[in-house]
Simulated assay, not measured.
Amino acid sequence: MVKYQDETLDRTFAALSDPTRRALLARLGEQDGLSVSELAAPFPISLPGIMKHLDVLTDAGLIVREKTGRTVACRLTAQPMEQAMNWLNRYAQFWSDNLDRLAAFVEEETWPTQPPPNAQRNAQRKVQASRSRAGSARGRKRSTPPGRKPSS
């Protein structure tokens, strides 16, 4: 049974990975029971392209298509999304708990407002040392500007 749920989650997240499919689901969320042509109307994609997206959504169990005469209507189904939300909520709870513990740790710790005196002196020495190295890296200044010959 667990393997089936993993496969369902894989199909659900794979179907949700495409922005066009998410937009199709959003349209069905606003107005359930749209025909395929009504659903496809705002998209700059061919009807066969929309049908392929609807096939993926159907395979994932996110929509159901019902044919009445020559019209095919699409409706949302909730079960795969519920499973995905349960999976996401488990990890949201995990991260929420860990971040709460981190926040409590940071808030209970007393942090010094200024570094200890030795740290200030060491930082000043490092700045001075880097300045002296930067000067030597540029090379010596020439006494004569470029292009002029020294007078003899």
Rank of each mutant, 00 (worst) to 15 (best):
V2A: 11
Y4F: 07
Y4I: 08
Q5H: 14
D6P: 05
D6W: 14
E7G: 01
T8R: 12
T8H: 10
L9F: 08
L9N: 05
R11S: 05
T12K: 08
F13I: 11
F13W: 10
A15Q: 00
L16R: 03
L16A: 04
S17Q: 05
P19F: 03
T20I: 13
T20M: 12
R21W: 02
R22W: 00
R22L: 04
L24F: 04
L25I: 01
L25R: 03
A26T: 06
A26N: 06
R27A: 15
G29S: 02
E30W: 10
D32H: 10
D32K: 00
G33I: 03
G33P: 01
L34W: 03
S35D: 06
S35R: 04
V36T: 12
L39I: 02
L39C: 00
A40V: 06
A40D: 04
P42V: 01
F43N: 07
F43M: 08
I45P: 05
S46P: 03
P48V: 08
P48G: 04
I50H: 03
I50E: 05
M51V: 15
H53A: 09
D55K: 08
V56Y: 03
L57H: 00
L57N: 08
D59F: 08
D59P: 00
L62V: 03
I63C: 02
R65T: 13
E66L: 13
K67P: 01
V72T: 05
C74A: 14
R75M: 04
L76C: 05
L76W: 00
A78G: 09
Q79K: 12
Q79P: 11
E82F: 10
E82G: 06
Q83V: 09
Q83H: 10
A84S: 03
N86D: 13
N86G: 08
W87V: 05
L88D: 04
R90K: 12
R90I: 08
A92K: 04
W95C: 11
W95E: 14
W95T: 14
S96E: 14
S96D: 03
S96M: 12
D97Y: 06
D97T: 11
L102E: 01
F105R: 12
V106H: 00
T110G: 01
W111K: 03
P112G: 04
T113C: 00
Q114L: 10
P115T: 01
P116L: 10
P117R: 09
P117L: 13
Q120E: 14
Q124R: 10
V127W: 15
Q128D: 08
A129Y: 15
R131Y: 11
S132V: 15
R133P: 01
G139T: 06
R140H: 15
R140K: 05
R140N: 09
K141M: 12
K141R: 15
R142S: 14
S143R: 07
P145C: 08
P146A: 12
R148V: 09
K149R: 11
P150T: 12
P150Q: 15
